[in-house]
Structures are given as structure tokens and as C-alpha cells.
Design a binder for these strands. Structure first.
Lengths: 204, 204
DNA sequence: TGTTTTGCAATGCGATCGCATTGTCAAATG
DNA sequence: CATTTGACAATGCGATCGCATTGCAAAACA
């Protein structure tokens, strides 16, 4: 085997450049040339790692999902199930430049999933993860007496995740402020969790 | 003034063709040529009515919003505030081909609003309408003793609309079934409205 | 040392893009 | 009847697109 480079790292560089392009110009701004220029590499290099534009886009979609997942996972507040769920939700909302950027990117791919079966499949596979996470936390809270016992954790997870996703765009385009949107989240969490630790109201 | 045609109707024809293109191929599929071909007219005609592509897109955005608004308004169930709100929500979810089509279209523009200030402004202007509609219905229900009196109608409207929007994509890509999603909606409505008429459970 | 294979860079092709220009035809106006 | 003006159709231009092709340098292997 001849000259060896870190294949995965090179793919990641290209993916990150692509995401920066999407952040600024949407999916329409993505071309082999624009991504190569953004990454500061030649177009040939991009083609070397991704045979087609579609492959490049799909890889970037998976890549950004992992990136969001890691960022959310790193910010989880373990003090209680409620705090855990709340920190995850807040972290998914576009409340600073980094999260706004990722919200723009995620939305671009989300829209594409409506017309692209491959993207739709990728997203469909990602949904259950969020659902079981929320459901599990609600279940834990119920067991600890910190959530209303009559609730169906799966149903509540569906509501919770939908609520979170539905708050993203209004926040992104400036309809909601951080205060407005966190109030909305806390209001809904009050209907699931009984014990409101002070950390859940002040954190965030 | 020479040969006169129905200017608005011609613009609408082009807008509808554009929306069909977006439905199938997303915003990226939109070009002067593709829209003209879809409308069955010449490219010159499209240019005659819209000086630039951006003008054409903006007009289509406003056009589809009006179309959705009219469709929802035509389906409202006036039997009670709850039924009214529920019918509006259900009508906004992609549960048949027509609504799936409009959901795809709306999502495409929604994503674009993240990078296009003009689109963002258009959407921002539309949000308050939904909010006051939901808030007003909740207020009416409270006055009639059909909703929990302690709730803040504005806050509940924010939650309700976010929930609705957040359910769109999972339903669109097939993660939710009609049964799943209507259960989620009804579950949330149960927390706002006290009186559950039989029409609210069977309708929709 | 020569061969092979990876990792690119460079270039070109046909298609398509937004947009400008020009020409034509019909109807209202003088 | 002549002129004007709105409603197009047709064409072309420069830029950009995805993708294929070609070539070459360097490193592992024989």
C-alpha cells in the first residue's frame, strides 16, 4: 500500500466545509467547486473521496447528525431526569451562533428529506433514538416519583420531541427570544415532571 | 393600453407550476426553464411576469401561504373551540397527498428562510396569525368553561403551534402514522380543554 | 530498483443556469 | 390608418454545473 493518509479525517474536512457552505447559502450553494474552495483544497480531491455529489451530501448529513448528537450529549445535566431532558432540549434550540448554524443546516437537510428518499430514510432511523431517550428519562422519573405516574412515556416522548422541533424555526428566524422559548419548554415540562428542582428553573 | 390579460391569474399559474416543481424536486429544481416547462408556457412569459428568479420565488411563497390558509379555513369545525383548534391542527398535518405535497413545499421554503432574510421576514409576519388564532380559541373555551382556567392562552398557543409544526416532518417521512399523530394531538389537547365532546374524539 | 497502488491536480465536456436582448403580434388610442 | 404599448416568443451570452478523463508524485512492496 502506497502513500497513506487519514481517510476519515479528510472526509470530515470536506464534510465540514460543505456544512459551512450550507450554513451560508443552503443546500443550493453546494457544488463540488464551492465545497472544494471552502475547504481550501482542489476539486479533484473532493472527487477522490466522494464519487458523486450525492455521496458527498449523504456523508455530510450523517456527519452533522453525529456532531449534533455529541454536542447535546456533552451538555446533559445529570442532576435529575427533568434536568437531563431540559438540557437536551435547550441544546437543540438555536440560541447561540453555533446552534443557529446547525439549525440552519439541519433544516436544509430536513427539507430535502421531503423529496429525497435516502435522506428521509436517514432521518427516520434517527428519530427512535430521541424517542427512547426521552421515554427512558420519563420512565426513570416516574420510578423516582419525579414524574406523573399516569403518563405514557412513549406518548410523552413524541410530544416532547415534536415540541422541541417545532420551536426551532420560530426561534431561528427571531420570532421567539431565549426567554420566550425556555418558558414554553418549562411550561410543558411542568406537565410531565412533578418535582421541580431549583436547577431546572435557573439553569440553561 | 393594448392586449389585456388577467395579470394576477397568469402569475398564479406560474406560481402553481413552481410549487409543483418544488413538490417534486425541492427548491433546487426551480429554474426559469423548469417552471416554464411545468406551466406549459414559454420562458419569455415567465420572465415577463417576474423580472428575476427571486421575485418569482417570493411570489410563490406568499401564494402557497394563502393557499394553505384558505384550505385550513375551509375545514374548521365550528362545534366547539376544541374542535376548531383540532381541525386546524389536523389540516396542517400531512395526512393525504394534497397535504403531503404542501408540507414538502412549506418545508422547502422554511429551510430557505434560514439563509434568506426576505423569506424569514415573510414567515415571521405569518406566525402571529396562528398564535392569536389559537390563543383566542383557548380564551373562548375558558370563558365557556371548556378549558382549564389557569392557563395562559398565549403560552398555550406557542406550545400548540410548535407541537403541530414539530409533528409535520416525522409524519411526512413516515415515522408517524395518522393514528399515532392524532393520538399525540388529542393527548395534548386534553391538557388544555376540559370538556371532551364526542366530536373531538371521533372527528378528523 | 522497478512495479504497483494510492492520493491527488488539472483539464475538458456537455448540459444547464439566470438574465439580457431583440423581434413579433395584437389591441387600445390618436 | 398610424402609433403606441403590453404580452409575449426566441435566441444568445457568459458563467457554472456534475462528472469523466488524464497525468503524475510518492510510498509500500517485490
Amino acid at each position: 500500500m502506497p502513500k497513506r493518509v487519514d481517510h476519515e479525517a479528510r472526509c470530515a474536512e470536506i464534510a465540514e466545509a460543505l456544512l459551512r457552505v450550507v450554513d451560508r447559502q443552503g443546500l443550493e450553494g453546494v457544488s463540488l467547486r464551492s465545497v472544494a474552495a471552502e475547504a481550501g483544497v482542489s476539486m479533484g480531491r473532493v472527487q477522490h473521496y466522494f464519487a458523486t455529489k450525492d455521496q458527498m451530501m449523504t456523508h455530510a448529513l450523517i456527519y452533522v447528525h453525529r456532531r449534533i448528537y455529541r454536542r447535546v450529549a456533552a451538555c446533559l445535566d445529570p442532576r435529575s431526569p427533568r434536568a437531563l431532558v431540559r438540557s437536551a432540549i435547550i441544546e437543540m434550540l438555536p440560541l447561540d451562533d453555533e446552534r443557529r448554524s446547525e439549525a440552519r443546516i439541519a433544516f436544509a437537510f430536513l427539507a430535502r428529506s421531503g423529496v429525497d428518499p435516502v435522506f428521509a430514510a436517514t432521518l427516520r432511523e434517527g428519530y427512535p433514538y430521541h424517542m427512547v431517550f426521552f421515554a427512558q428519562q420519563i420512565r426513570l422519573a416516574q420510578a423516582a416519583g419525579e414524574a406523573h405516574p399516569g403518563l405514557d412515556p412513549e406518548q410523552e416522548a413524541v410530544l416532547l420531541f415534536a415540541l422541541t422541533q417545532g420551536l426551532v424555526n420560530p426561534t431561528l428566524i427571531g420570532f421567539h427570544t431565549e426567554e420566550t422559548v425556555t418558558q414554553a419548554v418549562d411550561l410543558h415540562l411542568d406537565r410531565i415532571f412533578t418535582a421541580v428542582g431549583p436547577e431546572a428553573s435557573t439553569g440553561g
